[in-house]
Design a binder for these strands. Structure first.
Length: 276
DNA sequence: GTCTTTGTTTACAC
DNA sequence: CGTGTAAACAAAGA
């Protein structure tokens, strides 16, 4: 479940292994991961000879900047990247391999095969799906309390669903939305357009603080997340509500309740997070 | 076989 | 057509 802090951590750990490496060959064992170009054979043919110039992050997407292209990669639930010598055996969940001219390989591993890859000519990625659907990153200067408050005003949806909407703000997923709303003392079922400006400001602040702290902890490891060096995140120790069903609230001691909102498991302290 | 998991896309009712 | 909700979808493990 890599969300923004996990993808940020993956980006930083992966950088040291792949920048300036030149792709010599590409193998695709599960073509449905490749979304653009539609034909995986064409995808493969476009990459050899290109070097990895840099890696960026946009929301939950990893962006591999190549000499003349951008590879946009989404890890969905369980996608992972790792670098190995080519002689090392692959696992049954390795679906894409980028071979480098130095004998190493960047491997994409994904137990669920839900991840996606889109390849663009440089510049085209911003005006096409999936990146053109995204709202600002939480740390972008355009993501302000005013921006958030105006967006919340416009919708009848509950706040939980709005914060999961990547076109509002890009990078929050189920873990960090639940944690953000707990920190802001807002019940996830509150209607977005009924929230006061002060409450929007509290959500903004809570999101920024939670994400920043999670990044410094290297992300959250719930099921299987590790960074590209194989290290677990540590933020799970800081979780107040996510995955804490029936555990006592760290603030008030009442048991954390799990409910379904918009089809998503949602964790809430009904004592601390008021419906008002 | 059924159910759960998540982020995103698609279908559809209003 | 915009909006909101629900279902579909990707696949595997419990």
């Amino acid at each position: 479940m890599p969300e923004l802090p996990e993808v940020e951590t993956i980006k930083e750990t992966l950088k040291q292994f792949v920048i300036n490496k030149t792709i010599s060959d590409v193998a695709v064992y599960w073509p449905t991961i490749i979304k653009r170009p539609e034909d995986a054979e064409q995808f493969k043919s476009l990459l050899p000879g290109q070097s990895i110039v840099d890696i960026h992050r946009r929301g939950k997407f990893l962006l591999f900047e190549l000499d003349d292209a951008i590879l946009v990669s989404h890890l969905r639930m369980e996608g992972k990247y790792s670098v190995h010598p080519s002689r090392e055996p692959v696992t049954k969940h390795t679906h894409v391999i980028f071979s480098f001219s130095n004998g190493e390989e960047l491997r994409y591993n994904d137990v669920r095969k839900f991840g996606t890859m889109h390849l663009f000519k440089k510049g085209d990625e911003l005006t096409n799906k999936p990146l053109n659907q995204l709202g600002p990153d939480p740390f972008d200067e355009t993501f302000t309390t005013d921006y958030l408050y105006k967006k919340l005003k416009k919708t009848e949806r509950v706040i939980k669903s709005v914060l999961l909407d990547q076109s509002i703000v890009a990078g929050l997923g189920n873990i960090y939305v639940d944690e953000t709303l707990f920190k802001a003392n807002i019940h996830p079922l509150r209607k977005a357009n009924k929230l006061k400006k002060k409450e929007a400001a509290a959500i903004w602040e809570a999101a920024i603080v939670t994400l920043r702290e999670a990044i410094t902890q290297g992300g959250t490891t719930i099921r299987s997340y590790v960074n590209s060096q194989g290290d677990m995140g540590m933020f799970q120790q800081e979780l107040f509500v996510y995955g804490q069903e029936n555990e006592p609230c760290k603030t008030c001691g009442k048991p954390i309740v799990k409910m379904k909102i918009g089809g998503r498991g949602t964790h809430v302290c009904v004592s601390c997070q008021k419906m008002k």
